[in-house]
Design a protein around this nucleic acid. Structure first.
Lengths: 206, 206
DNA sequence: CCTATTCTTTGATACAGATCAACATATGCC
DNA sequence: GGCATATGTTGATCTGTATCAAAGAATAGG
């Protein structure tokens, strides 16, 4: 059963009972956590084929928001859990997805805790470039930003002003080039990678 | 089969092939990631009963270090994987452990990305207090720090100087009291919780 | 017991990034 | 098309935390 959400819609609130699990068909959704005074931090990005909800989990500890128009493919949680029980292969696959998310979360902890603003932006762009290259087979081309400056700031633990400044600094230095405010080209991927601060293959190795 | 490590020993290097999975019998181990220039960030703490390695994972993306003397209970990976395949209940349990780690990682992303030094320290102490209260049944007593100032700084994305200053500030304000440099008492848990910045039950709810 | 080493505290200073502010450019709606 | 709103850029200033520096406890080793 499909559900659609417009950009900006909240898909799930933190703490809300989970009646469904879902897979993203199209669009981008963000997982985020909030402090008392409203400061927020994105703790994950969901792209097509990513999964919301897990067997055995009736609640989640973060909000899920559509950052673009989103289509979900939903299953009722109970029947889904029953199916997982009877399909070892499916359980295994879900485990792998959870472990991948865990790796990504830890990679992001390093970024949030220790990287400079410049390194954060370089890492973010490199991540986008790598992702789109696996999708299309091309090393790079015009990349479109799935997020606003404000959302990128939330993802990277920065302010939107700092994000804007760092993007423009990288552009001035000729590492990237904007075609439009929401899409750009990576001019020099190697140089960009050198700016991430990462220890060679320090990240998620293919 | 048991193995022991002295405080400071490296248990596993990033990228090293995993021949074993293990469970912590006693002591504390830290998972950490490193940048090119040596900056490091802890991405997890392993306490007794926690698990190292997962079915299907032959490599890990972080170093594992003993922060105190550690005893591990090790299993060869292959036989362990076979056992997991045949024991749905065990697979389910491992999935739960992974999801708990994922929740903890995301909680820490919020801390690393958005909390102030004071909030980080308050959160850290509150976490220790909560953990020891579930172990002993008591709300608080003398807590011992399982880490040096330097290691705490690595865990919280701070420097050791800032950690020291914030600890002493909280002491001066009467929220905590040191009995010794490595053990202290929480004088006012409610006040401490107010300093974490968390949105009520914003964290991992029991 | 004394010395060496490690860990911690405290002070002075510097700087990256936040904050505050103003304006510019898009996007959507009537 | 033209106004309104959302999004993005750019500049000036402030501030929390890092960095640099030095000295004070604790711990271990001989």
């Amino acid at each position: 059963m499909y559900r659609t959400y417009a950009a900006g819609d909240v898909i799930l609130w933190r703490g809300e009972p989970l009646e469904f699990v879902a897979s993203i068909v199209s669009g981008v959704a963000a997982l985020s956590k909030t402090l008392e005074d409203g400061r927020t931090q994105m703790v994950g990005l969901l792209l097509p084929s990513d999964f919301i909800g897990r067997p055995g989990r009736t609640h989640i500890g973060f909000d899920v928001t559509a950052t673009s128009d989103v289509i979900l493919c939903c299953f009722e949680r109970r029947p889904f859990e029953a199916m997982v029980m009877q399909t070892p292969h499916l359980a295994q696959r879900l485990m792998e997805l959870a472990l991948d998310e865990l790796d990504a979360a830890r990679e992001w902890m390093l970024l949030l805790g220790r990287k400079t603003a410049r390194e954060k932006i370089a890492t973010f762009i490199t991540m986008l470039a790598r992702r789109s290259s696996t999708e299309s087979g091309e090393i790079s081309g015009a990349l479109s930003l799935p997020l606003t400056r404000d959302q990128i700031a939330n993802y990277l633990g920065l302010t939107l002003e700092t994000v804007s400044r760092q993007f423009n600094a990288l552009k001035k230095e000729g590492l990237i080039d904007f075609t439009d405010r929401r899409s750009f080209t990576v001019t020099d991927l190697a140089a960009l990678h050198d700016e991430t601060g990462d220890d060679e293959d320090g990240g998620i190795v293919p």
